[in-house]
Design a protein around this nucleic acid. Sequence first.
DNA 1: GTTGCTGCAAAGTGTTTGCACCCTG
DNA 2: CAGGGTGCAAACACTTTGCAGCAAC
Lengths: 142, 142
Amino acid sequence: MASKELKVLEGYITQNQLKITRQRRAVLKAFTECENHVSAEELYNMVSSAESKIGLATVYRTLALLTESGLASELDFGDGQKRYEHRYMHSHHDHMICTECGKIIEFNHPLIEKFQEKVAADNKFIITSHKLDLLGLCNECQ
Amino acid sequence: MASKELKVLEGYITQNQLKITRQRRAVLKAFTECENHVSAEELYNMVSSAESKIGLATVYRTLALLTESGLASELDFGDGQKRYEHRYMHSHHDHMICTECGKIIEFNHPLIEKFQEKVAADNKFIITSHKLDLLGLCNECQ
DNA sequence: GTTGCTGCAAAGTGTTTGCACCCTG
DNA sequence: CAGGGTGCAAACACTTTGCAGCAAC
């Protein structure tokens, strides 16, 4: 497992009088090894193979911890469940989501960001975060 | 009430062997009169004053009907509940959402749309819809 | 040995569905 | 008067929380 993530988590944990546990290590390990955009349930299934007695609630609680510590970001693609992606050493990007096969293509376009800033400034609005999802068909599903 | 919306709904209803009911009229009336971005529960409260015996389920079912007939669009701002906005005679736009007071500013920027199309084309992706939400602070909450 | 963490089950939240009765067309 | 619509309550899916025992520091 990438030990840098573990360091980040340990730093956050020790700074907040929290504890490092076997389960938290296991969830973090699975999270760093899995593909992006996992749901809590998917991660729970992955972790279960290593930590068979882990509870789903612990996975939810650890995902909240990862989000607070800056390792994960919550995503909501509008399908009724939250998904999580790697934030540490994974710069900002937006998503194209294929409505046919579910494939997600990440992209980033500096000019789009720039015009977002402009529109916000025109409205005296300060952007703290944004999300742009393009829904449609990927090249394989057309 | 804007009778054009009623015409659209009636057209959809008669084309699909459905029926016009007192409740559906009441929900449509409240929907046309209310501000944009209502949740089902908010609309239910509004309708209840006119149709006190209406059930929340009917509001949900009617909102689905409005969505299918093209009068409403479903929105998801990631707060765990769906919201609905007017689609008929209300062109596409994106949203700036104040995380402090909840205010929503609608905007549209042709160049952002244009670059979205470009990014999609570069990835051989066909956009069917998109959504862009900017989260942050409005001028009154800074 | 404190104090936070875990697993479990129960509670919550927003939405959908099954059903007997009602009403529109 | 047939077939869809309604209200109600129960079911749902996902997530959070209360609690007694457990484990990390």
